[in-house]
Design a protein around this nucleic acid. Structure first.
Lengths: 183, 183
DNA sequence: GTTTGCTATGCAATTTTGTGCATATGCGCA
DNA sequence: TGCGCATATGCACAAAATTGCATAGCAAAC
């Protein structure tokens, strides 16, 4: 399970609360790791127990108190260990692709809908990536940490672009099939 | 949960045993849906209970008996319902990308290893896809069912190609960084 | 003034997925 | 004669993810 590591990786940047992490998962790391806030809070509990993070409650006015988590040296150590282990191939499960396989039993119009929606989603992500890239990386001198993130970011950008291209082609195929049906 | 649907989708092609399905998952559907044989047998039990498949034991000589599962009309009906529902965005969890994010705390040599291995894996898949395409689809007349599968297959091909391109670029970046370190 | 939404945390139950183990036959190989 | 491999099925436990629920203060909109 790598949720623990995903959290620790986020915390290498700066100490964060569970709430921050949940938002961060949506924004940056979220493109290659997803988790709900419930999962994150639960995992933070375990990490604290094992001594990989230390937690400190911070009083706030006008808002509920937050609990800020900092990665410990032990946390960094297991991160190093983990990085050497070969990562498993991503599961790559996609219901949409599956639907194409049952083509006789599905609704073409619905598929067109699905594809359009998927493309929109990827375009939103692509825009967000580009924004992050231009804001934090373009024309800046990069330390080692930022270089790694830039590589990941570029892979993300590249991936979104490919997805959009693939999905658009499939969408066009669907539209021709749908038009041909009316004859 | 879409494992049930993944199985039903496979069974639309022809009746199969759990063993067949497990192999089929490795070969074709497996590129966008993965499952172990244990998972498949368990799910088949549930599908039988709900009446979405009917199962028949077939005696064999020299080999253990096999239980062949056929999709029922009810099974096809829920497949149709399912196809209309919007598919969720794939989880897209990748430990490798995560490691780039913790770049200060990781081993560059290990990353080079990981990337090389990943590229090899994708190349194996790509070769398999190409073989399937040339064998079953090139220069053939395609019915609706096969058209859907071809679209899925081409998306798979495209995806593997993009992955290889992305990973190769990252690998080159890593190698330059590693070389620069020796100075 | 009441509803909606954001900040902030977390438990509990269920569903889904993954891993290890178990069993049985027959074939080919050394 | 023993070993590994392919065929064939499945249980049981453990880990992970999803979903629903619960609490609570403040701000802004209506």
């Amino acid at each position: 399970m790598a949720l623990a590591e995903a959290i620790l990786v986020c915390l290498t940047e700066k100490p964060m609360s569970g709430y921050d992490l949940a938002k961060n998962f949506d924004a940056s790391v979220g493109f290659f790791w997803r988790a709900s806030h419930q999962q994150i809070y639960r995992e933070l509990g375990k990490l604290r127990e094992r001594g990989f993070v230390k937690s400190q409650e911070i009083s706030q006015q006008g808002k509920p108190n937050r609990i800020v988590h900092t990665i410990t040296d032990e946390g960094r150590a297991i991160l190093r260990q983990w990085s050497i282990k070969r990562p498993r191939m991503p599961a790559n499960k996609d219901e949409l692709l599956l639907k194409f396989y049952a083509f006789e039993d599905i609704d073409i119009r619905a598929m067109i809908e699905h594809l359009s929606h998927r493309i929109e989603q990827h375009e939103t992500r692509l825009a967000r990536y580009k924004k992050i890239k231009s804001r934090y990386y373009d024309g800046k001198t990069l330390d080692l940490m930022k270089k790694g993130k830039l590589i990941a970011l570029e892979m993300g950008l590249d991936n979104e672009t490919s997805q959009i291209r693939m999905l658009t082609r499939a969408l066009n195929d669907m539209r021709s099939l749908d038009a041909a049906k009316d004859d």
